[in-house]
């Protein structure tokens, strides 16, 4: 039994289903990556795990509890952190205020968590009083991840964290994500840069048209000739 798992999920936004019997799971301290061609339902699968769209079949289990009926807000309270692909920071708020808002549901003292986020992303400490909208793309992503970490989640979900950033920044972000995973958090992410993402993944899911096509360790998927040919450009 995995720490977080979406089992046999079938559902979509409207009448037509996008996901078909799709299963995704991740363990504590591990990185699971969802890859696949455009329109494969990668983001949809992650949103289903987070409760942003309804699945009529299947269930989502977090730490042994069925959370299928919870709203996204309640899932945050249950220990899930979510970083959307776009509009994932409060642009008119300062970096520090962004982190404070991330900790909004916490009633205890969160200064220690903030210090840890600053340790993870030292640049944010430097720019703590700057508006998040003034930061570069990579720094914004760091704010977004930092904001989600403020609730001290047990699972962190990232929707294409490296979309639109330069290759150097991408490497940096992946390093950050590995650091986060090392603290014992389960990480589930959707990635467009499949090769690099699978490189750091403990587990990879290749989705095609809303269905599980390949599921294996990142290493094995990278070595799989069929996966290489179809999804990684040879």
């Amino acid at each position: 039994m995995s720490f977080l798992s979406g089992e046999n999920m079938t559902g979509g936004y409207g009448a037509a289903d996008i996901l078909h019997d799709c299963t995704i799971a991740v363990e504590k301290g591990e990185i699971a990556v969802i890859v696949g061609p455009n329109g494969a339902g990668k983001s949809t699968a992650m949103k289903a795990v987070f409760g942003m769209l309804s699945i009529h079949t299947g269930r989502v289990v977090l730490d042994g509890t069925d959370i299928s009926g919870l709203s996204p807000q309640d899932r945050v309270k249950a220990g899930m952190g979510f970083v959307p692909q776009t509009n994932n920071v409060f642009t008119s708020l300062t970096v520090q205020e962004n982190l404070e808002m991330g900790a909004y549901i916490r009633t205890d003292d969160f200064s220690e968590t903030m210090e840890r986020v600053f340790e993870l992303f030292p640049i944010l400490k430097e720019k703590r009083n700057q508006q998040a909208g003034e930061l570069s793309g990579g720094q914004r992503q760091q704010v977004a991840v930092g904001r989600a970490l403020m609730t001290q989640p047990k699972v962190l979900m990232l929707d294409e964290p490296t979309a639109g950033v330069s290759p150097i920044v991408m490497d940096e972000l992946f390093d950050n994500i590995i650091e986060v995973a090392k603290t014992g958090i389960a990480i589930l992410m959707v990635e467009q840069n499949a090769r690099q993402a699978l490189n750091i993944a403990d587990k990879g899911y290749v989705l095609v048209q809303g269905r599980n096509r390949f599921t294996d360790t990142g290493e094995a998927l990278l070595a799989n000739p069929e996966v290489r040919k179809s999804f990684l450009g040879g």
Binding site: P72, V76, V89, F90, T91, L93, G102, Y104, R147
Partner: peptide
Amino acid sequence: DNEDLALLSGI
């Protein structure tokens, strides 16, 4: 600033 993210943050 960002209604969706505010909801996500539990506001």
